[in-house]
Design a protein around this nucleic acid. Sequence first.
RNA 1: GGGGUCGUGGUGCAGUUGGUUAGCACAUCGGCCUGUCAAGCCGAAGGUCGCGGGUUCAAGUCCCGUCGGCCCCGCCA
Length: 585
Amino acid sequence: MKWKRTHNCGILTGKDVGQNVILMGWVSTRRDHGGIIFIDLRDRWGITQINIRPESRAYEEAKKLRNEWVVAFQGVVEPRPAGMVNKNLATGEIEVLASDMQVLNSAITAPFNITGENVASEDIRLKYRYLDLRRSEMQKNLILRHKVAQLVRAFFSEHDFLEIETPFLMKSTPEGARDFLVPSRTSRGKFFALPQSPQTYKQLLMISGFDRYFQIVRCFRDEDLRADRQPEFTQIDVEMSFVTEEDIFVIMEGLMACILKEILDIEIKRPIPRISFDDAMRLYGTDRPDVRYGLEIADITEIVKNSEFKVFSEAAKSGKRVAGICAPGCANYSRKQQDDLAAWARQRGAGGLAAVKVGAGLLEGSLAKFFENGQSQAIIEACAAREGDMLFFCAEERDLSRQILAELRGEMAKRLKLIDHQKMSLTWVVDFPLFEWSPDRNRYVALHHPFTSPVPDDEDKMLSDPGHVRARAYDLVLNGLEIAGGSIRISKQSLQQKMFDALGISKAEAEQKFGFLLEALQYGTPPHGGIAFGFDRLIMILAGCTSIRDVIAFPKTASATSLMDGAPSPVDVEQLVELGLRIKK
RNA sequence: GGGGUCGUGGUGCAGUUGGUUAGCACAUCGGCCUGUCAAGCCGAAGGUCGCGGGUUCAAGUCCCGUCGGCCCCGCCA
């Protein structure tokens, strides 16, 4: 490389006209007119049009240029002729009239188009991820990711937080997700685990006195993948001492306000609304409600218990819930549309889906005759329905009812185009249960994690009535996606021990697995709590993507492999021998 | 572990109820062209339809299996 670059490809504008410049980048497109040749030269800052005329010293060489070759151009910034300005380009007012050129590297033909429409399928993109990342969309996403990371660091730093790194090689702990294990060479037969989150470390940092900690940190969970779940992902991890929920909410609301303002220029209203877990489940059927639209669930079990409509009354009497949503203005739904929706619900495990039209103050249609006027009116009132609406009900066990209606809400919102995609709706979900019954393990498990503090009033129920103990836990939900979750932690050793008891973890096991924490808690632990954001998910939403793979530079496939480098892969026998491992056939 | 869906030249797609030489766009190569910006025009090369088996006179098209991508359930404190 004989030359030194003077400018990047996204910066030159009309005010630079006349300057002699040297640009370097990739050939994005070439337009060879036989005489004049145009090259769109691309780097991560943008695209600049290079104009190569037959009289230029670069001309003969430029005829050989192909897409994705790496080249340097020397030339003068010139204004484009009248009417030739490209408004789609930041540099569209100018072009560089090339006087000389150097090919820095040629390129073989790319396996897919890097510029233009015609986006390759995802497996090809993943195999050639380094080329996929040249596409402007991917560049935009990773630049956005960087910007948010910097905002987060600046925000926390300004609020007196310290970024402290914690180990990736740690002790495997029970509970929670499956660990990724790393065999130890020096302690043969023993294993490290990669952190599912730095949970215990950040609590220990609080004990150490590092009040106000944060970290943008990789976490690892060996569980099956989803569009919003990767085996390694990034959290914004936060912990504070001498705080209550309110202190944490205030800081996190400040962070979200800052990010949404800086990135999307959206002002959010603070405080962010809160909803209890119970209310969320009752009104939305899920603990992460999308509140960009209404369509709240109405429970009419008690109203229809004594109705003539056997499907409802018998279900109600047998303990099932009869509940539904009101679809505004859908009274004109055809028989076929109703049947399709019922089939859709049956596919999800429902027995069926009853559709009832709302007329002037009374229900209408084939089911209406089963309800007395009083019942009819009560149903309309419970659903806050108006004439011209359509009510959809199912009669199922509580959990299935919630699950189906939660999905139905989403489906109807989509069909009725009730979702404002510009909108960012944040909600705190609070008052989670501390425990959840696990039929698999035949015991209660921690809904959040075993270090979550119970609500003080409920402490005495931890062993006698675990199902009704509330947790000092909270989630932050953005447009129906959980983007953060946290809690006030247990800071007393005795309460932590009680927690393990309630979880059916023996003294011996607790000592073996969490002994270090139980011991540490006795050395003067401040009350503390925190939260962790799913950084990838947050970026995904801000970028308007539907998969976190699109905001991660080198993601894994749904089966947790890397198509680019072929990981995971077999290793040499020698490596296994060193570790004292043998592969079972 | 289960369910769904996709798999056709380098890439993205089309291929009717199974039936003559598998189409189109972009990319590639060659030619023409001095103002384009997804340049244009002319021409060429390139696929046996993920893989294996089966049904049939005949399969890209039907069936079974298998591999891979994606989505969902389980799982994810």
